[in-house]
Amino acid sequence: MKNTIGLILNIMLISGLLSCEKYIAFDEDAATSKIVLNAMISPDTSFQVHLSRSLSVIDAGNLSSISNAIVAVYDDSGILVETLIEDSMGYYNGSQLPEENVNYTIVAEALNYADANAACAIPMLTAISEWDTLTINSSPNAAQNETEFQVSFAFTDDEQVNNFYMISVLAVQTSWGQNYSYPLYIETSDPKFGSDYADKSYEKLLFSDLLFDGETTTFNITLNDMSDMSYLILNLYSCSEEYYLYNKSYQTAVDTEGNPFAQPVQVYSNINNGHGVFGGFQLSSKIIYM
């Protein structure tokens, strides 16, 4: 019996070393590259689309841009608005300005890729109606030489449709006659932004009108790091749903990248037969001088 037990213990020791990590076949290894179409349109800028290719997640190749493609824009009647002209590095530019509430379809055709298409409309502009700097104080929470700055702003939401918004704030510094801008991190405990922004600061706050549909509402945000700035630019984006879903999910993906305990994040795409996003927005900006 002693010999038997000794043998078993030896086998256990050996087998313990076998517990392993191994490479296995990846079923999506041979995934065909697809067109990646990225475009955000607003009435102030002519159509601009970028095309690149996707690769299998284990492919170490370049996510290179796609040349010699045909990129056409159609309106909601299916009439060709224009065919975009290839610029360089995968950018395709148009000459016409898109209009709000027109449902545009972009179709991209390129050799060796399946045709990709996507549709989107620019939402109506919602403008900032009021804004104010509530307080400027040296918060005990703020780092040394930083000032905490509270901003309130208001706008009226259109009751008829589901609306989506994005807020960002740029700090502008003037040096040697040149303006330099950079995004500020925004903190808020305002429940109207939803619960996602309660704990941390973000460069962009994305929110829907779920909690203030059809109302004129005032929002409060807090900004830090106001040193040496000349003025602030407060941006309110009226977003299409595609624009909102993409930015919201991409923001989460960036925020949790590399965290093995975080749930995986699906980044939104509305490109048929491809990847990327085609969204629309309008921008209402206010300059706040310090």
Binding site: A31, V36, N38, L55, V57, L63, V267, H275, V277
Partner: peptide, 8 residues
């Protein structure tokens, strides 16, 4: 994730 691509 099965494919990778450049973000907007």
């Amino acid at each position: 994730g099965t494919e990778q691509y450049q973000s907007y």
